[in-house]
Every structure is written in C-alpha cells, then in structure tokens.
Design a protein around this nucleic acid. Structure first.
Lengths: 378, 378
DNA sequence: TTGTACGCGTTATCAA
DNA sequence: TTGATAACGCGTACAA
C-alpha cells in the first residue's frame, strides 16, 4: 500500500524554495548556528509559505532527546493521580515537552511493561509511582541507561533517583491524636496495606513496638507509613492498639473498602468502634458509602477523619476533617526535578518530603458513651 | 558536551554479535520477512545478551507511524476527563500504543498549541474535545494532512472526523421533566453556557421558541444542548420559562458555580426557586457547596438533579438524582475508532450519540408550597 | 533465505 | 556565514 501519508513539507523543500542548502535552512528553523539576516528572512518566508513543521522524530533521532517524558501513574481516573498528572502536564507544556501517560493499576508487571514501552519510545525521563518498594529492576536499568527517573508518592529502596513524597506518618499521627484527644479509644484504621510487600501486620506492629523500626519509613508504602502514625499516636496517648481494628483492604477499591467498613460498623456494638480513620481518598469514599448505607450520622454516631481532600468532604455532614496532600505540587515538583535532570543537573538526588495539612472541619466529636454517660452497653 | 547517552545497543551491534547482517537481524527482531531457525536463535540470543530494545523513533521515522496518539483533554484533573482518559489509555495499551496527554483548559489557543506539538511529534491520530464548535482550522489541517481525529463530548461543525458524544438534550429533558412532574415550576438551571460562541441566551431561547432550532443540536456545546432539553421539558409541561433562572457560569469553575448558586438561593424568597438542575459535575459540586453553606436540606428545602455521577452523589442527603454519562465508554470508543482509522479504516465517519442514564435517587420532592399548601407568598 | 544499499527528516561536522 | 556530507537506528527494495 504505502500511502504517501502527506505531501510532507520537509526542510529539504523549504531549503529548495528558499534557494539555500538544507543545512542553512536547518540553522534558521532550528534556531542553532549562524545565519545572515536576509537568508533568515528568505527561509522563514519559504517555511511559512509551505506551512513547514519540524519532524521531532527525526530531530530526536539525531539529538538523542525527544522532549517527551513518560509517566506511570497508578490509575489516572483516581483523583490523586489525575491531580498529580495535571501538575506534571502543566510543567511539561511550559517547557515544550509532551507527557505520555500510562496506568499501572499498582501491578508490577504492568508497570514494567509501561516502562519498557516508554523507553523504547525514547522518552527523556520517567515519572513513576513505583509499585514495588524493593527490586524495581526495570527502574534501575532505566537509571543505569541514563534515563532519569523521579518517584512520586512512593520510593523504591536505594534507587538513584529523586523523589517527591508526603510526610504520611506525621499527618496520620496528627489525625489519630485528634481522635484520641476527643476521647476515642477504639479507632478503626481503614487502609490498603497490601500484603504483597511481605509485611505481616502483627509482626510489623510487634517489631515497631520493640523499636525495630524500618531504617527509613519513607521507603514504606504510604499506607504502612500511615499505620506507623496510627501506632505512634496510640503509644503517645498510652492507649493500647487493637490490631483487629486495622482493616487491610488490600487494594485501592472503593467497593472493597465499603465492604470492610460495613462489616466493621455492623458489629460496632461488639467491637466498640467509635471513630474511623481512612488512609486515602479511595478508602474514604468507600467508608462514606458504608456509613451512609447504615444511616449513621457524623459525628453523632461516629467520628471520622479522612486522608485526601475530595470535593464532598467540604459539604458532607457539615464537613469532614481530612489530610490535604499537596498533590498538584507533587506533580509540578516531580516534573521540575525531572526536567532539571534532563537538562543535565547532576547534583545529589533530592528526596523531598512535603508536609500535609490537616483541614479541620466538623467530623470529630467525643464518643457517644463519653457524652451520654449512661448508654454504654459494653 | 555530547554525552554518549547510552552505549546504545542497536540492531547493528546485535547483528555483529550474531554474525549476520543488520537486515537479517531486523527481520528476526522486527518479526517481518523470512529467517531460518538457527539464525533466528542466534540473533535472539545476541539480542538478549546485549539487552537489545528497538528504537521506536527510528522505526517511526521510516514507517511513518509512531504508535502514539495525542489526546487533548479539557482538564485532566476533572473527573470527566480523567475517566475518559482512563478509557483511552486502556485501549491504547492493549494495542501497544502510547498516549500523549495535554490540557486545553477549554481555551482555543492552548488547544491549537497542543495539536501543533502533537503533530510535530508525529502522532498517528488525535482525540480531542474541541473548544470551538466552528472553524477549528488546526483540526481541519490535521485531517487534511492525513492525521485522523476523533472528537469526544463535543463536535466541531463539518469536521471530517468521527465523534463520540452523549445525548445531552434527552437526558436534560428527562431530568427537568421529573422536577416538573414533582410540581416544581421555578427550576433553576446552572450551566457553563459560555458566551464566546456568539450565543445570546434570550435570542437562543426566542429562536428555539419559534422553531428556528439549530440544524444539528449535536453541534452545540453540551451545556447548550442541555439548555435545549430544559426548554423542551418546560414546553411539554406547559410551564413558562423564566430565563432569569438560567445561570450562565461561563467557565468550568466550582467556585464560580458556587457563587452563582449562592446568589440565586439567597434570594429564593423573591425568585421562588424550588429546584436546581446542574449541567455537569463541576456545576454540581459548586451547587452543593452553596447548598451546604446555606444549610439547606435536600430535598426538604430544595430539590436537586445533577449531571455526571460523582462519588458523593451516592451518599449525600440520601442520594442525589443525576445523569450518569458513560464516560469511560466514550474514551474506549473514541480510542477504538481512532485506532481503526489509523489501521486504514476509510468507512463513513461515525457520529455516535450514546444515551445517558438517569440514576434516580432521593433528591426530588414536591416543592414546599405544594406540600404546606398555605405558605406561598408570591 | 540472506546481504547490500538506500532512505526516512533532521542535526552535526567540517571545509570553504 | 554557508554548503556538502555524514550520521542517527531502523525498514525495505532488490540482488544474490
């Protein structure tokens, strides 16, 4: 077939029309090297007349730079990644870069495939939320091959790459402190806490209790970091932790989160849960569905503190107290770091840990038994 | 400087190691042409040893196809575009394509710039939500140059391109019918209805009333299509329309929408508004903020019907009735159409208008005056 | 079945 | 300051 896909106005045609060599035309149009004024005018006139547009593929082939970055998000349809991507795209556009988006669904093999594809497309760099905290061979290979990587939200241990994360531990600790201070002693924690990373919940808590903390909490998954904050707050307050109140949803699924919370709350006469702390936007949405399905009122029947600032948290039940992550900022910072590396920055790797803000609204109240004084049935 | 960016293991090196010509190596690794079994093994072994990865730039330069599509969304951080993009990315991945994402913020010049960049990057096709219903010269140029375009959510008049949209008019009409049937006569409509398209609200309504409808409603902006549905429902019910209840927010801004609704509801003793119909997710969120700020209850003080199914609509006030657009589906369909065109499909252009579903929940009740029976003050 | 040689559109390197 | 020419890495005639 071989469809002549377009009358392709190339630099050769422009050069011919202007009566100069392709080299000269290239210098003018590419903005490199010298050129006299009248030649410049002639070439530009010819280019305009023909409607010349540079072929960035050809340019990239020879310069070795495509002005394209690759992004591996978990799931672009989630608010978190969508907002981060917006930040990335904003910076990319500003600098004349394109951004190829892929989703990993938090699956390592999909991430690997995506990185593979992006590298074959010769992206100048990669922004990734790594699925795996460990090996990540594909990321190491990329770095080794001179393809800079910037990590967002999570970091792979020992990877020679910048990272932009949030201080999840402190944020979670502050949340749980608020609940404890309000008198709650039975605070459920709803989190992803995927088990694939080899963590056993009981052992993790036991290790922590004996001060055998992970060397660097930043190398834990965010939900595990938030668990750390949950544990710390309890310790600080002298309140024992009941690991039965820590629900491992195991995936970023609203429905799965809802089911967990439903099960938990239906039995709250028995387990004594008076407050919920949700570990991210997905868990928060699931929890809210369950709470609504049961017809519970906040904070009357249940106190609630969430993670991630979703639209509804401003107006549901007079406002839900939540942790506001600087998500857009994470995106812009990551992109800026990456573009700096691409531009040749070889300074030490930065591991920025941004603070999160607690948006205090109206979803915390003292537990019912502390208020009523006489209705405790346990 | 000229950093030798990587020891670039090219097909030449693989061929050399395997002791064959580059053409033979290419045939094996590219999966085209003939090759004997032992040669095949030798080449593959060499490729594995060297960690060969094809350079898709070079491939694209010669084949004229990059296996990359360009996407121009309005704003990826909005739920609508994020979900559509997810659909696009899913199909792209399945077919081995990459997708470059850009945002137009609904501004024509940004859209134009984006299309420009994407075409210079030699994308095989474009998925666009066109800002402009008219000219769209940049899109026509793309089509003329053999770069297929698929339109999502909106269509540019007379563009030789497929489109995937939603039947906004019918969906809106059904919503307003529900409200009218419940006894509401003063229904406010909150919508973007940007004026830049030359539409004057009063004249638009007058033209419509005299049956001078636009030739193809599908070529209107979605919010104008929804206005059409609003008008039709009123006419069908024999209820006069008060254009003062149609609020043109003019931009997809939550805060702007909130302000409009606030102003409207604060004066509801005077304007008699008993129900709200919001035209999209952004308007819905803004409206809900205003309603919450005023402490109004739904549907007690106010009935509400929304457009777009956001998470919170399931659990706020026992559920908000809303129009559910098949957004993910729009994304996958658009991508499938585009990939078909790229693969050579030359059949007639498809203009798919998907039906939207009304999710009936609990946000409609008869107006207060109809219930109370005696409190009408107007 | 394999190898040679050329071309894709651009930038880079020289010599003029 | 300009121009001829060689890359960049790969696909594809065509010849062997």
């Amino acid at each position: 077939m071989a469809i002549k896909r377009t009358d392709s106005v190339t630099i050769t045609r422009v050069a011919a029309l202007a009566g100069v060599s392709t080299a000269t035309a290239g210098r003018v149009l590419g903005g490199y090297g010298y050129s006299s004024e009248d030649i410049r005018d002639r070439v530009q006139e010819a280019a305009r007349e023909l409607g010349y547009r540079p072929n960035r593929l050809a340019r990239g082939l020879i310069t070795g730079r495509t002005q394209t970055i690759g992004v591996v998000a978990g799931d672009i349809s989630s608010d978190f990644y969508a907002t981060a991507m917006r930040g990335i795209a904003d910076v990319a556009r500003r600098e004349g870069f394109g951004a190829i988006l892929t989703n990993s669904d938090e699956k390592l093999d999909l991430e690997r495939e995506a990185v593979q594809l992006l590298r074959e497309k010769q992206v100048d760099g990669l922004i990734v939320s790594p699925c795996d905290r460990g090996e990540s061979l594909h990321l190491r290979e990329a770095v080794a091959a001179g393809c800079p990587v910037v990590q967002v939200d999570r970091v792979a241990a020992g990877l020679a790459a910048d990272s932009v994360t949030v201080d999840n531990r402190s944020a979670a600790r502050e949340c749980v402190q608020k609940l404890l201070a309000a008198g709650h002693h039975r605070i459920a924690f709803i989190a992803e806490l995927q088990s694939s990373h080899g963590h056993d919940l009981a052992r993790f808590a036991a290790d922590w209790a004996e001060n055998r903390q992970p060397a660097s909490p930043q190398e834990l998954d965010p939900s595990w970091q938030r668990l750390l904050g949950y544990l710390e707050a309890h310790r600080d307050a002298g309140v024992p932790v009941d690991l039965g109140l820590v629900r491992r949803v195991g995936a970023y699924s609203v429905e799965a989160a809802k089911d967990h919370v439903l099960e938990l709350l239906v039995r709250r006469q028995h387990n004594g849960v008076t407050a919920l702390f949700t570990s991210d936007g997905v868990m928060s949405t699931g929890a809210m569905r369950a709470i609504s399905a049961l017809g519970l009122s906040i904070p009357g029947d249940l106190s609630l503190v969430c993670f991630d600032d979703l639209d509804w948290m401003g107006f549901v039940s007079g406002g839900i107290t939540t942790v506001v992550q600087p998500v857009h900022r994470m995106g812009t910072m990551a992109a800026e770091f990456l573009l700096a590396r691409i531009a040749g920055d070889t300074s030490d790797f930065r591991h920025v840990v941004l603070p999160a803000q607690l948006a205090e609204r109206a979803s915390i109240a003292p537990p019912a038994d502390a208020r009523g004084g006489a209705t405790d049935s346990r």
